[in-house]
Design a protein around this nucleic acid. Sequence first.
DNA 1: ATAAACTTTCAATATATTTTGAAAGTTTAA
DNA 2: TTAAACTTTCAAAATATATTGAAAGTTTAT
Lengths: 168, 168
Amino acid sequence: MELPEAKQKFIEAWGKLGSEWGINRTMAQVHALLLVTPDALTTEDIMESLSISRGNANMTLRDLMSWGLVEKQHKAGERKEYFFADKNTWNIARQVAKERRKRELEPVLKILDELTKVQGDSKDPAYKTFNTSVTDINKMAKNVDKTLETMLKAEESWFWGSIFKMFK
Amino acid sequence: MELPEAKQKFIEAWGKLGSEWGINRTMAQVHALLLVTPDALTTEDIMESLSISRGNANMTLRDLMSWGLVEKQHKAGERKEYFFADKNTWNIARQVAKERRKRELEPVLKILDELTKVQGDSKDPAYKTFNTSVTDINKMAKNVDKTLETMLKAEESWFWGSIFKMFK
DNA sequence: ATAAACTTTCAATATATTTTGAAAGTTTAA
DNA sequence: TTAAACTTTCAAAATATATTGAAAGTTTAT
């Protein structure tokens, strides 16, 4: 397989994976493109590479920046804005974990905490089932939350080292 | 807050979380409903509770069964089929991890393995960047894969116990 | 101030996903 | 058999999500 074909496959695979995990396909593809490209690209470059419109490219790049995955670069004496992706995989994973935790996990934890407090007749099966399920899910969500917190603070080698101690 | 309102909130929250993670909202809602309901429900019950059509309820229930989250129950002397969800949160997490690993992670790992093998000029920045990114992502994906494998085999208390040793 | 170079916005459009519901299919009891 | 009870299917419709592209906005150089 030649490099251009390989790049294409990578971009497609990343786009598909993204869309299966609730991330806009185009956003994942732009990210993939920047990941396999050594130099920073202009909006124009990205539009052309992926055959997308200016508006789409612009919005997607802003989104990627808000996720902390892509940064702007200014080149001396140039008007155009260049974009590049952090290529450190551990940073990417941490950044995604951080954002999804904030945007999705935390709001759910807040609701679960509330629902855990709902009072009822402990003889009532409807109440018992509700309470047990919500309480258990809340516990698990808190475990996930704490693990993510640890991951966010951790160094990559330490994190996976600790994980792999589990296999022993 | 009263129980019916609390149930409603839980169903909504679960549906929203699901859709943010690439799971059909209705599917997550049906699952949530079954999680907080002590007894098995008929298609009819579910249609009514969530105001969805028969076709939708039927397809969603089949989906949930294919994910291993819901089972059919036959009641003696009755024609109707009843559905109930496994309410053990750890089982649910494992089941979801198992399916997503098989359906989404494994196909991507296969592609990454291929792309890792692509040959090129190690002096070429385009090749170097491609190769480094793909190789790094492949390593991380394999780490995730192994961790999931461990999780699938593990008992809940052992798994979280091991995770929490990481905090020490 | 002007205009060229570039970026952003957003209503309209296109695409993808989900849902409906009625018809077809199946199972069971008598 | 027959028919009632129940389940499944799937084309059409509804809804949700993503994309376009031209106009408006901004910045910079002269």
